[in-house]
Computed example of a mutant assay.
Amino acid sequence: MTLPESDPTGLHRVLDRPAVLPQAARRLDTRPELWDDEVRIRVERLNLDAASYRQLERTHTTDGRVDGDAVRAEVLAIVAERGKMQNPETGSGGMLVGTVEEVGAGSPLGLAVGDRVATLVSLTLTPLVVEDGLAGWDGLGEQVPCDGYAVLFGRSIAAVLPDDLDPALSLAVMDVCGAPALTARVVGEYVGDGRPPTVAVVGGGGKSGSLSLAAARAAGAARTIGVVPHQAEADLLVPTGLADEVVVADARDPIALRDAVARAGGPADVTVVCVDVPGCEGGAVLATADRGTVIFFSMATSFPAAALGAEGLAADVRMLVGNGYVPGHAAYALELLRGHDGVRRLFEGRLHG
């Protein structure tokens, strides 16, 4: 069979007309035959992004009990309908781990058959077929055992899994590796200007949040503040030593968030938002000093709310969208995990319960 000409962005697998980029597409072509620059992965595990999984969990919770079967059925329905995993409510997906089973002759990714890899591009643009009905998943967590296949394009990104870490741990780290890399870059800009910043991380006890705190400290932040939603999270974060101050505040309450950060030594020069619930935009802006920077790493962020909210508050802040990619981000995040016992304890604790 002769395939039509491919495009490194994956445009050739978009079934929408007129054509759009794969992430924006309603449905992708999931045929297993490869174009010259593609790679096919035998999928071992999916990692749903936090915002997407929380939405599914909330939708299928009754009387405090999550219906895991219903969560699993909805994920299967999304993948079957769209040819990719893209939550229609949040627009987000996640990433996967698997083994390379075929490489096109013109693939620029540097992968070989048999490599065990984590994809560093979103499931929202990755052609995906599930072949086992997700029979090994109870629907009660973000990591999803899976047998099926996925396709990477010429401009996709993947990293070979390290031998010294459990694959589930590597996947959890790589899923959020863009956050610490961009945090380090922004903090480094302040340090380079002779202004070591105060950094507040909203959601500091989570995966991306804990790595961002570690990155801020390593990049030379003068002070780090971890914001968590309740005392149980604070009790987990405090012993790690990642934050100079840990404060409890509801990030959806703008005044409470502003005041909590102020009491801890703020306002922050850099505020990093890593929570997976909507409604945190105003508080992040209020917690940030004039001419400061807010980095939004949550897929639950409303960017109109952030922009219009800052305008309405006459807040002179720079707002950055964390797009999940910074060169070298996966290796950097794994280095932070290996080098900081507190980060590793947080990750392993979340994986095991």
Rank of each mutant, 00 (worst) to 15 (best):
Y53A: 02
S302N: 15
H60G: 04
V343M: 12
R31G: 14
S92E: 06
A70T: 04
L182Y: 11
H352V: 01
L242N: 11
V71G: 13
D132K: 08
G110R: 09
A51G: 12
D63R: 11
D341G: 14
M299K: 14
V247H: 15
R258I: 13
G309R: 08
A306Y: 09
A232D: 15
V227D: 13
D193M: 15
A135D: 09
P197D: 03
L165P: 05
G133S: 11
A232P: 01
I78F: 03
V130W: 00
E335T: 11
L21Y: 10
T119R: 01
Q143H: 06
E74Q: 13
V227M: 05
L242K: 14
L257C: 05
G209H: 08
G154L: 08
V39K: 01
A289Q: 00
L11A: 14
A315Y: 03
A184M: 14
P88G: 03
S210H: 11
A268D: 00
A314Y: 13
D63M: 11
G339R: 15
A135G: 14
E281D: 12
V227P: 07
A172N: 01
D276W: 07
L134G: 05
V285K: 00
S122C: 01
A307E: 14
P196L: 07
D250Q: 03
E81V: 00
D67W: 07
V275I: 15
T99G: 08
T124L: 01
L28N: 01
A222M: 08
D316Y: 04
R195N: 09
I157Q: 06
V129R: 10
D7K: 05
V14Y: 07
A112I: 03
R65G: 03
G324Y: 05
L320H: 11
I41N: 01
G178H: 07
V227K: 04
V151E: 00
E142P: 02
G339I: 06
G328H: 12
V103S: 07
L125A: 13
L109E: 03
V130A: 03
P4R: 06
G309V: 12
L346C: 10
L237K: 15
G93I: 05
D115W: 02
V191W: 03
P267F: 14
V103Y: 13
S210E: 07
G265Y: 09
K207S: 04
A221G: 10
A200E: 09
P162A: 04
G204M: 06
V277N: 07
L34W: 03
H340P: 09
S6Y: 02
